[in-house]
């Protein structure tokens, strides 16, 4: 009798194990995720016109004007040696000066940088040592100054290009 009960118990246990084994099923899938080097920079729009219309008597330097209405944002995952350079499509005539000042939390801002003669072949650094990650909504400051001796300047539009590079 005991042997019979033992045998029944074994059979029941085996049955449970078998059910449990068949109760599960699996499937697999391969997923590969690759992240390449990314550089992204954008600006919020165009600044207002920079118009000089005042000066100080006895001074050749006319009263400079500024615009801080625009911002830039960057995202990069390349490294910690990334920088922002700036150049214009054409240099300004002598006697007129355009400076830029880019704020930065991820890198080092070089403050007011003269970009009057910065063209595609001679871009100038404005922010250096930018760390990996993102920096959003940083202020772009423009300061335009002129010498009285340079005369008047009819409305001139310059295209300023900001480049995120290493």
């Amino acid at each position: 009798m005991k042997r019979t009960l033992f045998t029944l118990a074994l059979v029941a246990a085996f049955g449970l194990i078998t059910e449990s084994a068949f109760a599960q099923a699996t499937a697999t899938q391969s997923v590969t995720l690759a992240v390449n080097a990314v550089y992204k920079i954008s600006t919020s729009g165009n600044p207002g016109a920079l118009t000089i219309s005042n000066g100080s008597a006895g001074s050749d330097n006319l009263t400079a004007v500024s615009d801080n209405s625009t911002t830039y944002s960057i995202t990069q995952n390349f490294g910690n040696t990334v920088k922002i350079t700036v150049h214009m499509d054409a240099a300004l005539t002598a006697g007129y000066t355009l400076q830029m000042n880019l704020a930065s939390t991820q890198g080092t801002s070089l403050g007011n940088v003269d970009i009057s003669n910065a063209t595609s072949g001679s871009a100038v650094d404005v922010v250096t040592a930018i760390a990996r990650g993102a920096d959003a909504g940083q202020t772009i400051g423009y300061t335009f100054s002129a010498l009285a001796s340079a005369g008047t300047l009819s409305s001139t539009t310059k295209t300023v290009t900001l480049t995120l590079t290493n």
Binding site: V38, N77, F78, R132, A134
Partner: peptide, 17 residues
Amino acid sequence: ALASQGTGTDNHTITFT
């Protein structure tokens, strides 16, 4: 991926049960 994490590759095998 976070830009601050840099570049790289992950190879996953996903198992559904």
